[in-house]
Amino acid sequence: MKKMLMGLLVSIIITGCATAAIKTDYGQTMLTLLKSEFISKGPATVERVLSQDEVQKICSKYPVERPEKMAALIQDSQMKTVKYPSDGIYIGDWKNGEKIAQNGRGFQSSDPLGGVNGGNCYACHNITKSEISYGNIGPSLYNYVKAHGSSEQVIKYTWAKIYNSQAYTDCSSMPRFGHSGILDEQQIKDVMALLLDPASPVNQ
């Protein structure tokens, strides 16, 4: 009986492998094409798009929804990547923050190597009353303090959200600005000021 079971198991495995070998692995074929048919240009490199991290892999495979456990795993692992400001100061200059929010440059094949990156926040968020050209992929951030307050908890949450959006929302559409090296610590402080400084137009 035990022998029979083993035999059955082996035959299932062999059949399984044979089927897999015949069926095209579309994901693998796509990666092969990506490797051979794309050319690195400026800061946008083939190596970078080929080296998906675990989060990118899962979010590609499950673009709409993840099983609950997987979602929690992503959020936990991403929360661990968050680096809070080394000097304990969270709020910078909102005027610089506004410039960063307007600037969509950085890491495009048309951008120079080593240029200053923007956050391009307005691409997806309503932020200030005066800027009417804003997108709607993300929620409105206008009146941020009125909506969320400015407690220590809110300040830390906001920092972590900008640093690594997926610490709170697995597979968020928002780039992981700190974790992926798009914005540096000072730039994040300035964007924080845009949202949290009472003098910022966000809170006027």
Partner: peptide, 15 residues
Amino acid sequence: EIGKRFFFYRAGTHD
């Protein structure tokens, strides 16, 4: 199918 995989492929600096 390959095009579909490409459509959903998240990668690069901005995910």
